[in-house]
């Protein structure tokens, strides 16, 4: 998944998860959901597939997911059954920063 940019949208090949890229590391990142590489949101998923059991904790709408370095950050725009991962390592849920409401 070379050339991935902030704002790009991806979908899971094996569940309903969709994400938007908030930040990416400088080097190309392989992003997976449910154990399968994610595809461009405009592509049709292969169908008839389900997340592999070791990547099936699910994604939550509106939550952010980050890798250990914090360089890769994804926003879940549609929830699903698969778990997000990069380089074979599951992403972690990022705690929301509490900001006072300004409008």
């Amino acid at each position: 998944m070379a050339g991935l940019k902030t704002g790009a949208r991806l979908r899971s090949a094996v569940c309903t998860t969709e994400v938007m890229v908030i930040s990416v590391p400088d080097k190309p990142a392989e992003i997976a959901c449910g154990g399968a590489p994610m595809i461009d949101v405009a592509e049709a998923p292969p169908g008839d597939q389900s997340p592999s059991p070791d990547a099936a904790e699910g994604t939550k709408l509106g939550k952010r997911y980050v890798d250990d370095s914090g360089d890769l950050e994804l926003l879940c725009t549609k929830a699903g059954d698969g778990s997000l991962a990069t380089g074979g390592v599951l992403l972690k849920l990022k705690e929301a920063k509490k900001l006072p409401s300004s409008d």
Partner: peptide, 23 residues
């Protein structure tokens, strides 16, 4: 779109308000 969406994503938590909140 990129400006306004960036502002919201950078300053607001999705679903962060309780059901009783009104502005």
């Amino acid at each position: 779109h990129k400006h306004l969406v960036s502002y919201i994503l950078g300053s607001v938590e999705f679903g962060g308000s309780g059901a009783e909140e009104a502005t």
